[in-house]
């Protein structure tokens, strides 16, 4: 696959994104330089291809991605991979607030730490964080997995639906309606397989799996009649 270099600098972000799409559709592997942490780089990427941001990116990098493999050399801003439905996003450095917000599929791999509310409202897919999770990881996440090889900040697994937060290190505190459960051996196998696939060291990890206590899932009554107005 031949490579195409696209420079960002202070150029128009709309045109830059059009250049990404054209290059990816023409079968190029794209290298992006002079990224300057700008917002909205690589929005709505196609179902296949590779794009490498050689620097830091701003908000919503890889947002609405459908299948492209995205690599960010340094840091990423807010909402990295928000609403993505496929593909992978690898962030070498720090990934800011709400990484993978409302994502519907695919994989986000953060090599550094993650900011607050990682995986907020996510619907499916995996977020693997080699460092630590920030505040309120997995806030109101529906489904999918957030996996941290490091620890987790305060309010971990806050108000979860069916999503799971896996933490190997220390957890500062659990969020509302969250509990730690003993993972099944098969689940651990699955996680290990995923980590192996990402080229991460195979070793024993003391996993804590955080799931919902389901106390916030329901109002008190399941009986429709109790909702009839007086």
């Amino acid at each position: 696959m031949s490579e195409k270099v696209i420079q960002v600098g202070h150029r128009d972000i709309r045109i830059i994104n059009q250049e990404f799409l054209a290059a990816l559709e023409a079968g190029y592997s794209v290298v992006v330089t002079d990224t300057l942490s700008r917002h909205n780089l690589g929005v709505g990427l196609p179902q296949s291809g590779k794009i490498h941001f050689d620097g830091s990116v701003g908000y919503y990098c890889g947002g609405l991605n459908t299948g492209t493999d995205v690599r960010v050399e340094n840091n990423a801003g807010w909402g990295t991979g928000e609403a993505m439905s496929g593909g992978t996003i690898t962030v070498n450095g720090y990934s800011g607030m709400s990484t993978g917000a409302a994502m519907l599929g695919g994989l986000i791999h953060v090599k550094g730490d993650c900011g607050p509310r990682c995986g907020v409202a996510m619907k499916a897919g995996d977020i693997v964080v080699e460092g630590n999770l920030g505040y309120q990881a997995g806030f109101m996440a529906h489904r999918g997995r957030i996996i941290a090889l490091g620890g987790a900040g305060p309010s971990c697994g806050d108000a979860l639906w069916e999503a799971e937060v896996w933490v190997a290190g220390d957890i500062e505190s659990l969020g509302v309606d969250a509990k730690i459960v003993e993972p099944e051996a098969e689940e651990v196998e699955e996680i290990n397989a995923l980590l192996k696939q990402l080229g991460l060291e195979e070793r024993f990890r003391d996993w804590r799996k955080i799931v919902s206590e389901q106390k916030l899932w329901y109002f008190e009554s399941r009986d429709a009649n109790s909702w009839l107005m007086i």
């Binding site: 609405l64 991605n65 459908t66 609403a83 439905s85 917000a101 409302a102 519907l104």
Partner: peptide, 8 residues
Amino acid sequence: ARYGVDLE
């Protein structure tokens, strides 16, 4: 809540 919001 972004129910089902994707590019498609």
